[in-house]
């Protein structure tokens, strides 16, 4: 007599390891397996045969996971985009609020440099948070690793395959850290580039300062966000295709 509970536990553990399915999604699939086994056993089938049949009819978890990923994907894209935009708005907001608070609190005659210094508090806080987060991501990937690796060829899901490896998390953390540090350094020299851009654009295109400022404030960051988004999508597609 087959111990169905034991089989269900093993099936669930394997499904959890080889997929990105949530506990609720696994609950639903597990319930389905149980329903089919119960029905087959009630019709007189041996529990072992009923179990094997139910698992076969349910299908492999990897393709199911892939289908679920397709359903979830637009949400993920939207969520990430929203967070990127929110981060940018928060970043700009903190800078402006810090500058205003410093200027009004100090009153007339207060050195404007101090206001600028306060404005940088927001910037530095964000830098510190990002830096800490990236270090944690890189270390977690390098030290703890991910979930155990699934057998090669048993899954068509690239996320499932990546879960078992330590290097992706470590590499992504390290690469992001490198990009962040490089861009943080570039901020210090960014003013020179901005000045050069202003001068070049105003001479070449005849743009007034208003339009140049508008470009810097609105379009340049929007383009940067779009570029990051497109790079991320292409990387994801490349990995999925491989």
């Amino acid at each position: 007599m087959l111990n169905v509970e034991e089989r269900v536990t093993t099936w669930r553990a394997e499904a959890r390891l080889g997929s990105t399915l949530s506990e609720e999604e696994l609950d639903e699939l597990e319930g389905h397996l149980r329903d089919r086994v119960d029905a087959q056993v009630a019709s007189g089938l041996d529990s072992g045969v009923a179990w094997e049949g139910a698992v076969a009819r349910l299908g492999e978890v990897a393709p199911i996971d892939t289908e679920y990923s397709k359903v979830r994907m637009p949400n993920r894209v939207r969520d990430r985009l929203v967070w990127m935009l929110a981060g940018y708005v928060l970043f700009g907001g903190i800078q402006q609020v810090a500058r205003l608070v410093a200027t009004f609190a100090a009153g007339p005659g207060f050195p404007t440099e101090f206001g600028d210094a306060w404005a940088h508090v927001g910037l530095l806080s964000i830098h510190a948070l990002v830096l800490t987060g990236l270090v944690v991501v890189a270390l977690r990937g390098a030290v703890k690793g991910g979930r155990p690796r699934q057998e090669p060829g048993s899954s068509s899901n690239w996320r499932g395959r990546l879960h078992g490896k330590r290097w992706p998390a470590a590499a992504m953390g390290a690469a992001s850290l490198l990009i962040f540090l490089t861009s943080a350094l570039a901020i210090d020299y960014g003013q020179w580039w901005a000045t050069a851009l202003h001068a070049g654009a105003s001479r070449a295109l005849g743009l007034t300062n208003f339009w140049l400022d508008l470009f810097e404030i609105a379009f340049a960051p929007a383009l940067a966000i779009a570029a990051i988004f497109l790079i991320w999508r292409s990387v994801e597609r490349t990995v999925a295709a491989s």
Binding site: E25, E28, L29, H32, L58, I64
Partner: peptide, 11 residues
Amino acid sequence: TDGMLYPVLHR
């Protein structure tokens, strides 16, 4: 394939 029903339902 039984399992493929659920992603469709979720969609």
